[in-house]
Design a protein around this nucleic acid. Structure first.
Lengths: 277, 277
DNA sequence: GAGGTTGTTCCTGGCAGCGAAACGCTCGCT
DNA sequence: AGCGAGCGTTTCGCTGCCAGGAACAACCTC
């Protein structure tokens, strides 16, 4: 019956270890929103898009502008993302060894295969494209650097997912529903687990029109010195019209490139990866 | 010594239209710092690098982490830039028409010339590299996407600077000293103005080892529908060893690519905006 | 030139966030 | 092993910053 003092000592339900700065959070929401917009936005529009008062938005925008994270167009008094945001964001590439190492191999893949190559990393149960080199086709794939994709429906995603710890795989699969994007998308968790097992055996992942109709894709993981899958590469080829590259040639090229990159990253080939051939 | 309450009501002379949010500003400084670092940093190190107390830094880092702008390594409890920062920063490319339009032309330039091509835009009296496609040389240029360069010592920079309004040119030249990077760097404002006049006549800018010894570079501006120089492209070639590409062929290719890109951006080739200074 | 719309400024109560200090953990030194 | 320095994290009270409404200004529309 007696109320202990410990209960009283938390008047605002301090979530114990989750202190955050409100204004900073708001600023990040603004940055995030501006990152998704392709056009400049006004203060009012921005405010009601993210649920903040005009004045708050305005003051935060001034702060972002002073640091160059936001650009102000004096002609229409609208705001957009500033180059500083780009500059800072690209800074992550410098600390990512896989990016620099993989680049020449991606170029090599595009040169020999003529199809579009990607480099992606895992982030928060999703895949983020780090680099992309377009193939020699007239139609260009709609997948920008910096954009996100689910793990279960992409070649890079499945290649990354397959080589995580079991517990991580379970957590990620449980975290979000396996959304269907095409009729081929794997939506059953057990089927996905079986697919991942196959991917581990093969050493590469196939995306057979699972993310987008008419798009076939081969992905292979990159391991660093510690044996962790730090990134993955893929080559995508549209199925429309003639299919100039045979699957096995594609697979062989991607897997070999991935192995060579992994070697340069210090991967010594731990026993887990079965021989591929 | 008694302080009346009326005096307290105006504690700081409000700088009239320059309101900013302190915590947001600090968060941006942290992001900026993390963007320059190639390794993970600790709270203390970060705090004394930017002059803040540990607890403030820690709280802001938690906020940044919750939004994915910062990544936390549980092994060493250190922080680094998160993929969200990359994602948001890349969002700027989507709203930049020049980027998408120029890409194929850059690839074409690299394919025919074999040298490294760049795309850059003006930002705050500096140049920021937006895109880069490496040439077929074994040595790769040290110039990352997202990095900054001065305007007066680079091909892209001079090409951009030359086509601004007179008043803008004067402002930018006056804004910062013309730092010398090599013995060829133009450090005299009047010499620079003459060089810019020459660039306007020619339609392209040359960087003859002005930023880096042994590096020759040709830049040409891209105009959009309104006739403003929204970006510029360049091709760099090292002078060491044999010089496989003749200058005039290089220049011709760059200029032609720039003109075609400008045309696609809606530039009608109007005689140039005179009379504004 | 009047009315509507949008961006900016002013003002004050309320509370969020800053910094100092304390806590516990992990290393490295002895 | 023992101990203490160094680090990341948490706590706590005081300071000063933000939210919100409303008036003001500039711009466009009609």
């Amino acid at each position: 019956m007696a109320i202990s003092s410990s209960e009283v000592s938390a008047p605002q339900s301090r979530p114990r270890g989750e202190s955050k700065v409100n204004s900073v959070d708001r600023a990040l929401v603004i940055l995030e929103y501006l990152g998704t917009q392709t056009k400049e936005v006004g203060v009012r529009e921005l405010g009601q898009a993210i649920g903040l008062s005009k004045s708050s938005v305005h003051r935060i925008l001034q702060t972002l502008r002073a640091r160059g994270f936001v650009k102000w167009n004096p002609d229409n008094a609208r705001y957009s993302l500033g180059m500083k945001a780009f500059e800072v964001g690209c800074g992550i590439l410098r600390s990512m060894e896989a990016h620099a190492v993989a680049k020449p191999y991606l170029e090599q893949l595009v040169a020999t295969l003529g199809e579009t190559a990607f480099l992606g990393v895992l982030d928060d149960a999703e895949l983020v494209f780090i680099d992309k080199i377009d193939g020699r086709r007239s139609v260009r794939l709609y997948a920008d650097i910096g954009s996100r994709r689910p793990l279960h429906s992409t070649g890079i995603g499945k290649a990354l997912l397959a080589h995580l710890d079991r517990s991580e795989i379970d957590r990620i699969i449980a975290a979000r529903p396996l959304t269907a994007y095409t009729k081929n998308t794997i939506t059953d968790p057990d089927a996905l687990r079986a697919e991942l097992e196959k991917i581990r055996r093969q050493g590469y992942a196939e995306d057979n029109e699972e993310m987008e109709d008419g798009l076939y894709c081969v992905g292979a993981p990159l391991f660093n010195y510690s044996g962790r899958p730090v990134a993955a590469i893929s080559v995508s080829v549209p199925k429309m019209g003639q299919q100039p590259v045979q699957k096995d040639r594609l697979i062989k090229a991607v897997v070999q490139a991935a192995q060579e990159i992994s070697a340069k990253l210090g991967y010594s080939g731990r026993p887990k990866a079965a021989s591929l051939g």
